[in-house]
């Protein structure tokens, strides 16, 4: 089966610091790919590049067979909308909005049917144990905000969900619950999951584990 994401010789440097040094990666549809690496290894940098949020990199990135270097900003936006879901390490929720509003935000601005979007969002939120009430997300706990960000990342029905340390603020039990749910959703919707993971328990669920070291990815058994 064709890769949904194909990255070749990806390089990224910040001034003198070379973070990624010619990295290759293929993401196959539906797989769970875990990325590990010490802090500062460049995991977030890699996800930003794969998510087409960072365009200042060397090498070649193809998403669904299309070379991202050849796409205009609006075409990239369309690509993200169609194929990619993203959960930021710092969530990046709009603080003034409620959980439900944050989740339906992509739908609202994409002109999708609001009623359907709301129903779907409410369902995902309830499966993630988040109340769909009037509380602005600034007032939610870190774990709750993380789950809202997860729900928002899934809102457009992506082919790939990228999550940067999605269980960082969760206790072991909540972490297992979250990944059980992600497994269910993945079975239902068939999206691939690329997640930066630290917890050993979660790594066991992954189809592949890749370690980011010295600017490239190494398979871990």
């Amino acid at each position: 089966m064709d890769s949904i994401i194909r990255a070749r010789d990806i390089q990224r440097e910040f001034g003198d610091i070379r973070v990624l040094e010619g990295l290759d990666l293929d993401v196959r549809p539906g797989e769970f790919l875990a990325i590990v690496g010490r802090s500062g290894a460049g995991k977030s940098t890699l996800l930003a590049i794969l998510g087409t949020h960072d365009l200042d990199h060397g090498g070649r990135l193809e998403i669904s067979g299309r070379d991202t270097a050849l796409l205009s900003p609006p075409e990239l936006a369309a690509l993200r909308r169609e194929y990619l879901g993203f959960v930021f390490q710092d969530f990046h929720l709009l603080p003034e909005l409620t959980a439900l509003e944050n989740v339906i935000l992509p739908a609202v601005f994409s002109g999708r049917d609001l009623g359907t979007a709301r129903t779907q969002a409410a369902e995902v939120l309830s499966r993630l144990s988040i109340r769909a009430d009037e509380t602005p997300t600034t007032l939610l706990s870190r774990g709750e905000r993380q789950r809202v960000a997860m729900a928002r990342g899934l809102a457009n029905g992506p082919s790939v969900l990228m999550a940067d340390e999605p269980s960082a603020s969760l206790d072991a039990e909540s972490e297992q619950t979250l990944f059980n749910l992600l497994d269910d959703l993945r079975r239902e919707q068939g999206f691939a999951l690329i997640a930066v993971i630290h917890s050993r328990a979660v790594l066991e669920r992954a189809d592949r584990v890749l370690e980011l070291r010295d600017g490239i990815l190494h398979e871990v058994d």
């Binding site: 949020h53 993200r80 909308r81 990046h92 929720l93």
Partner: peptide, 13 residues
């Protein structure tokens, strides 16, 4: 930036 990360079409923006 958030809206763009979510793939919001430029014409909506």
């Amino acid at each position: 930036g958030v809206l763009m990360a979510l793939g919001t079409p430029h014409n909506r923006l």
